[in-house]
Write a protein that binds this DNA or RNA. Structure first.
Length: 293
DNA sequence: AATGAGGCCTGGTTGC
DNA sequence: TGCAACCAGGCCTCAT
């Protein structure tokens, strides 16, 4: 499941393989893949045809490709990989993937860019670039998203204040992309385990020190995952060349139910959380007396 | 305004 | 064996 480190791996791959290339044609094979492009698939293709990709950028789990010479100002093609989205750079003529959703052909007749997405939670769309709250130019639909912990301009104090300002459970705050972006279920559980904090701890009980620790832990674990090429549990996540990451071998909490905690040996527990799962160590991360539901 | 629940998806796995 | 239920989960929409 692509989270920030995986998306960064994809961004780097795109920077290596599609920068400065002119788009010759775009095929939309599944309308759901462009559902956030409200003008529809034909408009999506028309806006991209003939354009040259001039940048590959990312904030949190969103990435976008800058386009040259927009008629009405700067614009970009925005991508979210959802749960199963892949950006594949594939030699033309290779068989279509079963879940191929969008294909970009280039004027240089080099390898195609294919967006492949089994579960279709992801998608692509074209938007103008607008000034974002924290500075910088972002595609309009994501201009409200906070900077992520790997952003050089990330404001740690502001993010901690954002967590403490919320009135909810700590994990919900970590998953709120307007507080801090890029953290999903996997890295939330890993950061909480490293900071020895329970996911349901009310944010009003979080000290500044604890806030710094849990966000610092999130940055550390994402750095480690990026160094390992991203987390992958199955064949759904691959980078632009189709190679999987292998950080899942290093996970301490996520998916480790009933296995001994690496710190204390207590079996990791799995709790239901937002119709999903939270994994934590019952001993290192004791449930607070007043847990947030 | 801020918070939280529900819905969208598919394919692999589990259980009867 | 066949089929249904369940599970993964980011984020948008809607209700409170």
């Amino acid at each position: 499941m692509p989270e920030l480190p995986e998306v960064e791996v994809v961004r780097r791959g795109l920077a290596d393989h599609v920068l400065d290339r002119q788009i010759a044609s775009v095929d939309v094979a599944h309308p759901r893949a462009v559902r956030r492009h409200t003008a529809g698939g034909d408009d999506f293709a028309a806006r991209l045809t003939g354009r040259t990709i001039t940048g590959a950028r990312r904030r949190g789990k969103y990435l976008w490709l800058d386009l040259d010479g927009g008629a009405a100002g700067d614009d970009a093609v925005l991508a979210h990989l959802g749960m199963s989205g892949q950006m594949l750079v594939v030699d033309s003529g290779r068989d279509d993937e079963k879940h191929l959703r969008i294909r970009f052909r280039f004027a240089d007749d080099g390898p195609e860019l294919r967006f492949v997405d089994q579960r279709t939670f992801g998608g692509l769309s074209v938007h103008p670039l607008v000034p974002a709250v924290g500075g910088g130019l972002l595609p309009e639909p994501v201009a409200h998203i906070a900077r992520d912990p790997m952003d050089p301009a990330f404001d740690l104090d502001a993010a901690v204040a954002g967590i403490r300002r919320r009135r909810t459970g700590l994990k919900r705050a970590l998953l709120d992309q307007t507080v801090v972006s890029g953290i999903g279920n996997i890295y939330a559980d890993e950061a909480l385990w490293r900071a020895r904090l329970h996911w349901a701890r009310p944010t009003e009980m979080i000290t500044r020190k604890q806030g710094h620790e849990v966000l610092g832990a999130a940055a550390e674990v994402m750095d480690a995952a990026l160094a390992a090429g991203g987390t992958s549990f199955d064949t759904l996540y691959v980078n632009v060349n189709g190679a999987s990451g292998y950080f899942d071998r290093s996970l301490d909490a996520y998916g480790q139910a009933d296995r001994p905690c690496r710190r204390c040996g207590t079996p990791i527990r799995r709790d239901a959380f937002m119709n999903r799962s939270s994994f934590s160590c019952p001993r290192c991360q004791p449930r607070p007396r007043r847990a947030h539901p």
